Simulated scan of single mutants.
Amino acid sequence: MTRPATRIELRQEAYEVIASGTAQHLPRETGGILLGYGEDAHIVVTHALVVDGPGASTHRYVRDDVRANVLLAAFLAQRADDDPTGYVGEWHSHPAPSGPSPTDVAAMQATAREYDGPLALLVHAPGAQQPFFGLITRRQRMGRVASKAVTVLPPLSRSEALGPLPDGAVRRDGPG
């Protein structure tokens, strides 16, 4: 028996697509598909696709399922046969800093009833102290579905953090 997924690891390429898609659609919500694979006790998200949602507003996003299926099929057709990357869940943005709504959880649970394995939901709320909220949903025995809030690990920074500047490196009164 495998352990249930306990976290979502977000890789750089997926992060950039989600952050860019969110910024381009503000103040409306947007979203799409998460692609990746399961590793040990977590889901690794390597790619994200933006799927427009007709009628998206500041508090609602419903993806276009037909468009989502076309984009997913095109993505998967480009992968090698032995590539483990596949559908692992959904993402969408919240312009206000909030996590998954009851509607979001119910939608993921409905999807999980038809899917074998854990599914991730990422909610990107760029104004929040922690900009990603994660949820993993999985079908269990007897058709029950369980959802659990999980930690989202953002990608590692591409550059090292700068330390303090040396004394005298910057004048307080501006350039001189």
Rank of each mutant, 00 (worst) to 15 (best):
G21W: 00
T30F: 04
Q130C: 12
A48M: 01
L34G: 02
G53K: 12
H59E: 12
M108V: 05
D40W: 12
G127M: 12
L135G: 03
L49K: 03
A23Y: 07
I33D: 05
A107C: 08
P102D: 09
V105F: 03
Q24I: 09
S20D: 13
A77D: 07
V51S: 04
L71C: 06
Y37F: 14
R28Q: 13
L76M: 12
E29T: 07
L49R: 06
T22N: 02
I136N: 01
D104A: 05
H59W: 12
M108W: 02
L121Y: 01
L49E: 04
P97D: 02
R63Y: 10
G38K: 14
E114H: 14
V45E: 00
L72E: 11
G134D: 00
S98G: 13
E39Y: 11
S20H: 09
H47R: 14
A73G: 15
D82T: 10
E29L: 09
P84R: 07
A128K: 08
T58P: 05
E90I: 06
H47C: 08
L119P: 04
A73P: 00
D83C: 05
H94F: 04
R113K: 09
Y37K: 11
D65E: 14
D65H: 11
V44Q: 06
A41T: 15
P27N: 13
T22V: 09
Y37M: 13
Y61L: 08
H94Q: 09
R79C: 00
V88Y: 06
E39V: 11
H47V: 07
V17Y: 04
Q129I: 08
P102C: 04
H92R: 06
D83N: 01
A56K: 08
L122D: 00
S20E: 14
S20M: 10
L49V: 15
I33F: 07
L76K: 15
V50E: 05
D65R: 14
L121V: 09
T111H: 08
P27E: 12
R28W: 09
F132A: 03
L135W: 10
L34N: 00
V17K: 00
P102L: 02
H25R: 14
H59M: 14
L76C: 09
P131A: 10
A48L: 04
A19S: 08
P54E: 13
A77R: 07
I136D: 04
L72I: 07
Q24S: 13
G31W: 06
N69L: 13
D116S: 13
S20A: 10
T85E: 10
M108D: 03
L121E: 02
A68H: 13
Y115W: 15
L121Q: 03
V44E: 02
T46A: 12
A110E: 10
E114C: 09
P126W: 05
R67V: 12
L34Y: 05
L34P: 03
V51R: 03
L71G: 11
V45R: 01
A125T: 13
P27R: 12
A23S: 15
A128T: 09
T30I: 08
E114T: 08
A19H: 03
Y37C: 11
